[in-house]
Each structure stands twice: as C-alpha cells, then as structure tokens.
Design a protein around this nucleic acid. Structure first.
Length: 435
DNA sequence: TCTGGGGTCCTAGGACCC
DNA sequence: TCTGGGGTCCTAGGACCC
C-alpha cells in the first residue's frame, strides 16, 4: 500500500514506442495511423493509437492486414533498430537525471524506486516526470505507481487504458488495490503468460484477485517459484528487486528468417557465416568471449504441405574466443553436419553460450594459452565503425546475400549515420528576405 | 507470395561421483 | 534371499518477457 513507511515502485513506459520514434522525424504523421513491422517485414510489432483503433492487432502478419492498411492510408515502416536504440538512450538519460534509482528494463520501459517519503504528491510528481520527458525527447510516456514492480506494471496498464487517467495512475490504498485486481484478467499479469493463464482459468481462477486468494503450495505447484513470487507481489510484498546494474549476458544469439526460402548449402553457408561474424562482433563489443557455439537451421513450419526439418549442433571450443574467423570455421563445420538437401530452409542462427569476460580466461594445465593477439579484430572493428558496417567483412559471408531479409520501408538512420541526418530548410517570406 | 528476434529462468531426468 | 544414499552437473524442454 502507499504509505510513508514503504517504498514505491514506478513503471515508466513509452507509448507505442517504435511508432512514436518514427513520428519524431515525420511530424506530418502526428495524427495519422502508423505501424512498424518486424524484421523481414513479417509482423506488425508497433501501432499508433489510430492504427489500434482501426483494429490492427499486435503481432499479426502484415500480409493479413494489407487491405485494411491500404484502405486507411496507414503509414508503414520496416523496423529501424539503430534509431529506436538511440532514442531509447535519450529517454533513459533524461529519466536518470531526474531519479537516482532507475532500472532500464527494456528498450521502452524503466522501473524507478521512490524511497519512502520522498514525494508527498505522487500523482503531481508523475505529471512532472511525464511532461519533462515529453519536452526533452518528444516521446510520450505513461506512468504507473504501486508498492511492488508487478503492481506498478498493473498501474501502468490502467494509466494507458483508463481515459480519465491521462497517462498517470497511482495505486492508493488497500480497497483501491482490491477493486483493481478484481478487474485484471490473470493473463494480463506480468509473469503469467498464455499457457499459465489458460491453465488457471481451467481451474476457475480468472482474475488477479482470485489468484491472490489461492493457497501458496498450490500456486507453487502450478506456476513454480517464479509464479509464487508474482503472487506475493500482487499481495504488496516486494519480491522482485530493482536491478540498477545491467547483469552480465549469458548468451548471444544472431538469427534471421530469410527473405525467401533457401535450399542450397552454399546460401546457408553464407548466412551462417554472416550470423557468426555478427555474433563475434557482439562478443567483442561486450568485452566477452564464447566457449560454446550452437548452429541451428529450420524449414518453415507454417507451410503444412512441405517436408519439415530442423536441427542444431553444439560445438565446444578448446579456448574462449571472439575471433570472427574461428567462430565462422566451427559454425560452418556444424552446419555441414546438420544440412540435409531437399528442404526449403526458412531460418538459420548462431547461438553463443558459456560466455566469459575477455580479460579473465581459465587456462588449462597441459595446453599453451591461446594466442593473445586481438589486434586484427580491433582493426577490423575500428574500420567498420569509422566507414560503416561491412566495409571489411569475411569472404565466407558472401556479397550477394540473396537470402537477406526484406526491409522495404525502412526510415533513415536519422540520428546515428552522418549521411542520413535530416535536413531542415528554412524559407523566409518575401518581405523579410535579405536585402 | 507474405507469419520477428533476442533474451532469462525453472524443472525433470540422466550421467556421473564417492 | 539379498541390491544405498547423497550429491553435482549438464541438457532439453517449457514457460515467460519485450
């Protein structure tokens, strides 16, 4: 409950984030429907309010909505992650200047912790936060406040959906909380997914309030300890703490669906080499090396009539590495072992596990340490950073990349590439033109 | 024709050890 | 007729998140 004795958690969530980012540089679209597509222009992953009002569903395949989209002149964008990442950084910077205890939870969400008694007027303070973030970044946010992170999530939901909330929602007392929980579907609770929701409903548990009244042992059996933790949080007992430090990565994955089905080993080799090289770069950027390289390939399971195949192969390295050539070599060997001709492949990927910091390696008693020379990779990374991605790349990654994913409607890298900066033009009326 | 990508955590079961 | 107990580590699969 909100009381001066306990801390308050807040969830700040950017509204329709990707669509809002696209609008920043297209003010002409401020009041028209906008959607953003997933990689490969496959699914709709962000919608402006106007697009939601047209009945365009989250995660629905683009091709199924195309008629509706044309009919209402919906603006369509391929996803532009460099842009969204950069805008996200600006949003988080502004928030962190205002509040000391911030957890960046995802590209468009952050939790904050307000110590007891720091803000008397929580709703008023939230309005100030919201207005400041809007003014400094141009991105609209919604704010929910409650006694735990899970309840802050629920409050945020009401901030977005309750028209009278105007983007701010504070849980204010025991009875208020009970009324809210009675109105929340179990499937809408943070941490309860589709499977668990269906299972709970089958057993007569439909609302968050009903779930909080269940027996702990029963909950643990049904939903494991993570589910029990969630229920505790619904009961206003904080169990999920604020994580200010970014935890170390445990795995890195690079995978894509192909723009069109691939059936030759040569094309798959190009793709897998490309993904291995990208994964190696992510390792170096994060100051990490990998010890376990996993390669997987699969056909398109949506095509019921076609023969299906999927397989993966794990390879453990003798010594941790982040060297592009090393990773490509083992990835291609794994690919060769699992490739079967006669299938139309839809997706491939490289997954790295067993990550270790680049600067502390476990040596082995009877083997010489791996060569410590990383200057080649440093040089390649520096050149690509200066002159653009893939200025230098491995030959195995190919140049034609026929299999490359579709990205038909991508907006410019407005904020991260010199050559694509937006240009502002001023025009003066005749009367004030220079003499 | 066209259905995303990148993560984390938990559990059960098997292999193995003394 | 009789056949232990306690533990770790690894992996696959399932569930969740944005």
């Amino acid at each position: 409950m909100q009381s001066t004795a306990s801390e308050i958690f807040g969830l700040i969530d950017c509204n329709n984030f990707y669509a809002s980012c696209e609008r920043l540089f297209r003010p002409d679209l401020a009041h028209s429907p906008v959607v953003v597509l997933s990689n490969n222009d496959g699914c709709i992953i962000a919608r402006s309010n106007e697009a939601k009002a047209l009945g365009i569903g989250m995660g629905t395949p683009y091709f199924k909505q195309e008629t509706l989209i044309r009919k209402h002149h919906v603006a369509v964008f391929s996803s532009n992650y460099p842009l969204y990442g950069d805008i996200s950084q600006r949003v988080m910077d502004v928030l962190m200047r205002l509040e000391p205890d911030v957890e960046v939870y995802s590209i468009d969400e952050a939790f904050v912790r307000l110590p007891p008694g720091t803000h008397d007027d929580l709703a008023g303070y939230s309005r100030f936060l919201k207005a400041t973030m809007q003014q400094h970044t141009g991105i609209p946010v919604s704010i929910g406040l409650g006694p735990t992170k899970t309840l802050a999530k629920i409050a945020n939901r009401f901030a977005k959906t309750d028209p009278s909330a105007a983007g701010i929602f504070v849980i204010t007392g025991e009875q208020h909380l009970k009324n809210l929980l009675a109105a929340v579907d179990v499937g809408d609770i943070w941490g309860i997914g589709r499977r668990h929701a269906a299972r709970l409903k089958k057993q007569g548990i439909h609302t968050a309030l009903e779930l909080t009244n269940c027996d702990d042992t029963w909950i643990r059996r049904q939903l494991t300890v993570t589910g029990l933790r969630t229920v505790m949080e619904l009961r206003s007992i904080p169990c999920i703490s604020l994580e200010k430090a970014v935890p170390a990565k445990k795995s890195i994955c690079t995978s894509r669906s192909f723009g069109q089905a691939v059936n030759t080993l040569a094309d798959l080799q190009e793709a897998v080499a490309t993904y291995a090289a990208q994964a190696a770069y992510k390792l170096r950027r994060g100051g990490l090396r990998t010890t376990v390289v996993d390669v997987f390939i699969r056909t398109n399971s949506f095509k019921k009539g076609e023969p299906q195949y999927c397989n993966r192969r794990t390879f453990t390295l003798e010594a941790p590495s982040s060297h592009t050539a090393t990773l490509i070599k083992v990835a291609l060997a794994s690919l060769k072992a699992i490739y079967r001709p006669g299938y139309r492949y839809q997706k491939a990927g490289v997954l790295l596990n067993g990550l270790v910091p680049a600067n502390c390696e476990q040596l082995r008693l009877f083997h010489a340490p791996a060569p410590g020379d990383t200057s080649l990779m440093h040089a390649v990374d520096a050149i690509n950073k200066r002159w653009g991605r893939d200025t230098i790349q491995s030959g195995a990654a190919g140049l034609a990349k026929k299999w490359h994913f579709r990205q038909m409607q991508k907006s410019p890298a407005y904020t991260t590439r010199w050559s694509e900066l937006p240009v502002a033009k001023a025009s003066f009326p005749e009367s004030v033109s220079m003499a």
